[in-house]
Simulated scan of single mutants.
Amino acid sequence: MAKQDRAVRTRQELICSAAEIFDRRGFMSASLADISTGAGVSTGALNFHFSSKKELGETVQAAAEEGLRYITTTCTEARPSPLQTLIDATHVLATQLGENVVLRAGLGLDNDAAWHDGAELWLKWRSWVRGMLTIAEYEGNLAAGVQPDDACSIVMATVMGIESLGRKDAALYSRRVVTRFWKMVLPSLASQESRAKLDAGGSEVVARWDEHTRAGDGVAGPLTVARCGTRVDER
């Protein structure tokens, strides 16, 4: 059992190391030697777990996809209004982009010119965002004349901008930035009746997430891979 546990830990450390290097240097410049060194194992040990750098990239994206799904599912299961669900999910995603290198690297690979046949995580996120906005439209939560596709484009542009620019300024990965965005957007996006019930700063779902994250009790589930560190400040 101890040997099996050690193999699991080694695999997790390799995923973390690969994510950190993909995130800092991009897929093309990442080397298997540097990834194994970052994980504190030999290149032979890396080859035992992963046959290629491409397989490592696919594994990082698979972990990021699981994390993204966890965010949307957790926020949806709380059953607030669709717009509040969307607000909450953007808050969690923004802070996780700053805290979880696997999630950040997985999304980053989608926009990496050297990466092909990826998981298209941003398209999956866009599909979920549009779904929430479509439900909001059906329930009469959107302001008159607002189309889900148009609103989705604005949300996507903002979140992807936070992900990209946050690599240069980690302060963008914050609740404060997301709250300001929603305070500016909601008067044009939401109907007057629904707007009165929305919290641009996030509902109790986000507050509970923050509390559990600080406590380190594992509530983030698949968002943590062996407690991967984050190195935003090293970029």
Rank of each mutant, 00 (worst) to 15 (best):
D199F: 02
L121R: 03
A220F: 01
A170D: 14
V8R: 07
V129P: 10
T179H: 06
E58T: 06
W115E: 02
S153D: 14
V101E: 05
R235Q: 08
I21C: 13
R176G: 06
W182Y: 10
G108I: 03
I21H: 11
A157D: 06
V185D: 11
M1F: 04
E77Y: 05
A200M: 03
F22T: 02
D110N: 06
A62I: 02
V8N: 00
R130K: 14
G145N: 07
V102Q: 00
N141P: 05
S31N: 03
D199Y: 03
I71Y: 13
S164R: 14
V185I: 14
A144D: 13
A94C: 04
I21W: 10
Q12P: 12
D149H: 05
P222R: 11
E65C: 08
K168D: 04
T230P: 01
T72I: 14
E20I: 11
F22A: 05
L14P: 07
G108H: 05
V60F: 01
P187Q: 09
L123C: 00
T74F: 12
G40I: 04
T73L: 08
M160A: 06
E77L: 12
A94V: 03
D210M: 10
T43S: 07
A196M: 11
D217N: 08
S17E: 12
A2D: 13
L165C: 12
T37P: 00
V225H: 01
A33F: 06
T37G: 15
T213A: 11
A171N: 09
L56F: 03
S127P: 00
I35P: 04
T73A: 07
E13P: 00
I21A: 14
A2C: 12
G218V: 02
T59A: 14
D112E: 04
S174T: 06
R11K: 08
V8S: 06
S127A: 15
E20D: 14
Q84K: 03
T224E: 15
P80I: 00
A114S: 14
G131M: 02
I21T: 12
E163W: 07
D88N: 04
R208P: 00
S194F: 06
D5P: 04
M1G: 05
H49L: 02
A33K: 12
W182R: 08
N100S: 11
F181M: 08
C75T: 10
T43A: 04
A207M: 06
C228W: 04
